[in-house]
Computed example of a mutant assay.
Amino acid sequence: MKKIVFILFLLCGVNLLWANDSRDEFMQDYNACKNKDEQSCKKLISLFEPRCNDESLSQEDRGFACSVVAVAYDFNEKYHEAASFFQKGCNFGHGAGCAELGILYYEGWGVRQSFEKAASFTQKACDLGHGFGCGQIARLYALGEGVKQDFKKSFSFAQKGCDLNDALGCGILGILYEGGWGGVKQNKAKAKEYFGKACDLGEQVGCDGYKRLNSK
């Protein structure tokens, strides 16, 4: 299960940064931390951990702050600490925190490996409107990992994920339409359409599927 590209959930959707924060400075620290700059990671943690714990802030703000702290730990492969703060972010309703926590449980990084918990947290992320979580729970239902294999549920979650521009969700739709699985009739035209969207969103499975169908 691949890792999240964090920029999207950190900067999209809501006013995630406080009035006195510099978005440019935040992104500079974020990118440096992503490249294993320890001081930049420490700076993010020192700035956002107090906000994660600040009871005067909204749950949305606290959830975001907790997830930023988790990201900083995650980039430095301190997965136990990352899991703790992703859990806090998830508890505050931050969908990306739930999705990333699901990945940690799937891989067994910083926590005891559990496909069941991976499924639970990625589904919660999807329920919170996080497209990546929808794509991941669709994948788990397709494979029967942590949940009973169910192609109809896989299709449903993949559709929601693709509607939210999740590449994996679109790719799974392409696979299901190509094979006629998940309660849908085989439809090569729709399969090609969804493979194409998945490819445009950066999913190699989509590019391979589109090329395969386009050559027939």
Rank of each mutant, 00 (worst) to 15 (best):
99 A>V: 10
109 W>F: 08
129 G>C: 09
117 K>Y: 15
116 E>V: 10
117 K>P: 03
108 G>K: 03
94 H>Q: 13
92 F>V: 01
102 G>W: 01
139 R>D: 11
121 F>E: 06
111 V>C: 11
105 Y>L: 06
120 S>N: 10
111 V>K: 13
106 Y>D: 11
128 L>K: 06
135 G>V: 00
90 C>W: 04
121 F>Y: 15
102 G>C: 12
108 G>I: 00
95 G>R: 07
109 W>I: 00
130 H>T: 05
102 G>E: 01
106 Y>K: 03
90 C>T: 09
107 E>N: 11
125 A>C: 09
106 Y>A: 12
123 Q>G: 10
133 G>T: 01
95 G>V: 01
117 K>R: 15
125 A>V: 08
131 G>A: 11
124 K>F: 10
96 A>T: 00
100 E>W: 08
115 F>G: 02
99 A>I: 08
103 I>A: 11
119 A>W: 03
89 G>S: 04
140 L>H: 13
112 R>T: 15
99 A>E: 12
95 G>C: 07
112 R>S: 14
125 A>I: 01
136 Q>C: 08
100 E>L: 07
136 Q>S: 14
115 F>I: 00
137 I>F: 14
122 T>W: 05
117 K>A: 14
123 Q>H: 14
99 A>P: 05
126 C>W: 09
123 Q>Y: 11
98 C>I: 01
94 H>Y: 15
90 C>K: 04
93 G>E: 13
90 C>A: 02
116 E>D: 14
135 G>K: 02
123 Q>F: 12
126 C>Y: 08
131 G>T: 01
86 F>R: 14
140 L>T: 06
86 F>P: 01
104 L>E: 01
107 E>I: 00
94 H>L: 10
136 Q>R: 15
